[in-house]
Design a protein around this nucleic acid. Structure first.
Lengths: 176, 176
DNA sequence: TTAAATTAGTCGCAACTGCAACTATCTTAC
DNA sequence: GTAAGATAGTTGCAGTTGCGACTAATTTAA
């Protein structure tokens, strides 16, 4: 690669001149975006290449697998922050593969209760250890202490953005 | 929302039974993905709604604005980790809007040297403070100390993933 | 009771983007 | 010098996904 790129600005002058410059590589939104894409890529070798699941499908599987009770597509959409149309398509695909099944909800016939089939549960059980291992691999550059710290900081930012749609918060909504 | 969701598993039993369960909300890849999407959304109100730029266009603008020398599309593609076809389309759009201009490189007529026009520079100067403010807003739930820590931890993970395609690393490649 | 508003889920459409093929140019090896 | 391979950039194609309109069902208000 014998290009003739001139070295870019360094730290000492990164904020000179009106401070109206922005180093993309120090810009948190960009870094998050890039990191997220890279991590997704790394994981997709597990659930995509090996099991033919895309991200929305994996999210449905993960949500249903974690909660052992059936829940609605809307619930999955809410707490994974994925558009309901995307969830709808993922559920359709998973039903065709007999990974997920749904039953009518007699109390509210607009919604369906979704749950894993036996086959879906087996897939979940097989997949989870692989993904957890992969996660640890990605975080292997951090000490246990640092991982905790990182998780805590992520949590703070999520909170700040009202992004805490985790199981606790989703359930808490019921209390209102 | 009068659903009948049963509260999900809590911390004390989150890892019971074969440890073969995974709380999506504690799973770092998912959290990064969700956070990244949310942050992108928050920022797009600045560069998308207000200036009609999409993410790849913003990346081109940011890269060219930060480096004051012209550089190739390939360079932008490399260090933003964005596919070259995506960069190509972004550059085309930005040229049509006269935000970016390109000149032939006499030394290698395959590539073009890209740089901001006067108008592009003005746009950049106008946009950057807004985005930096937005970034600070997003990080406002962290103390100065915590922000440093977060940036450092991000850096470690990026390094671990060989994601350090920042200006230093990109330039360093020249040394080989 | 009935009409208006809300909600769950589906689907068509359009925008986005990665892949891969393609052209043009340059480099390497013989 | 020439042929094979590599590289920069463009473009057609296809897969994905968000948006918004739609249906069906439920809730709210009058």
């Amino acid at each position: 690669m014998a290009t003739t790129l001139i070295p870019g600005p360094r730290e000492e002058n990164a904020s000179r001149r009106k401070a109206s410059r922005l180093d993309l590589f120090r810009f948190v939104p960009f870094r998050l975006n890039r990191l997220s894409a890279e991590v997704s890529n790394a994981l997709s070798s597990e659930y995509q290449a090996r099991y033919g699941l895309d991200i929305p499908e994996w999210r449905v599987l993960a949500t249903l697998g974690f909660r052992n009770d059936a829940c609605s597509a809307q619930y999955i959409s809410d707490c994974t922050r994925t558009h309901k149309s995307t969830i709808s398509r993922a559920v359709t695909a998973l039903m065709e593969r007999e990974i997920v099944e749904r039953v009518e909800n007699a109390e509210d016939r607009r919604e369906f209760r979704l749950r894993l089939t036996r086959k879906g549960r087996a897939l979940y059980e097989e997949l989870i250890p692989r993904l957890l291992r992969k996660e640890q691999e990605i975080l292997s550059c951090l000490s246990a202490q640092e991982r905790k710290l990182f998780a805590a900081l992520l949590g703070k930012i999520e909170n700040g953005l009202d992004l805490v749609q985790d199981s606790q918060a989703a359930d808490a909504k019921e209390a209102y």
